[in-house]
């Protein structure tokens, strides 16, 4: 782990403390230079993740993020390079640095809609050619229909999902993350909290 940090410091990268995985944030302008330097230090590209933070509960610097999963063989170290960008902004293609970026960038382009400049062959890779839009964007419609029950009640999927996202504590008042590990004191979901929350939802 310390070796990873030395390697990253050599490359002039800052990482986020306290995160589960070693993540370094890079600006789009510096991405290519950083990648070239890391490539010279024998880091290899294994994966690219595209994320749309549109509905994320914690404020993020920009709507989209592209995360490069890099691996160092000698040190068995892994680092995630994270680049934030707004809708309409583009990123330089890393195909000239690592050939592995070919399909991976095409996939991010196809599913999230991030454009990579100077990619030799930026076409869709997974979705059909006549599909418009990018399915992994959060505003892409799911195409689901409400469930209708006998007595006229119906369950609206998006409302149902809103009740189980991280935005509020849900019907039980219990949020598991507060109890991860053993350090924090356990807070059992009592019946009072449960009924109080049910009342709150009804009102």
């Amino acid at each position: 782990m310390n070796n990873t940090k030395t390697l990253l410091r050599n490359a002039g990268l800052e990482w986020q403390e306290g995160a589960l995985e070693t993540t370094a944030i890079v600006s789009p302008a510096k991405l290519k230079d950083t990648a070239e330097q890391l490539q010279r230090e024998e880091w290899y590209l294994l994966d690219i993740v595209g994320v749309d933070y549109l509905e994320f509960t914690v404020k993020q610097p920009a709507r989209f993020a592209v995360i490069y999963n890099l691996y160092h063989l000698g040190e068995n170290a892994r680092v995630f390079l994270k680049v934030f960008l707004e809708d309409g902004e583009t990123l330089p293609s890393l195909y000239s640095v690592w050939k592995a970026a070919n399909y991976l960038e095409r996939e991010v382009y196809d599913l999230v809609g991030v454009v990579f400049d100077e990619h030799p062959d930026l076409r869709k890779v997974l979705t059909p050619e006549d599909l418009e839009g990018h399915p992994l964007r959060k505003d892409f419609p799911l195409g689901e229909s409400p469930t209708l029950f006998n007595d006229g009640r119906f369950l609206d999927p998006s409302t149902f999902r809103a009740g189980v996202t991280g935005k509020d504590r849900g019907l039980s008042g219990y949020k598991g993350g507060e109890r991860a590990g053993t350090s924090s004191a356990p807070l059992p979901p009592t019946l009072e909290v449960f009924t109080a929350n049910v009342e709150k939802v009804k009102a």
Binding site: G166, K175, G177
Partner: peptide, 9 residues
């Protein structure tokens, strides 16, 4: 509902 993990990656 399932469990709620903390915010993180």
């Amino acid at each position: 509902e399932g469990f709620h993990p903390p915010v993180g990656e």
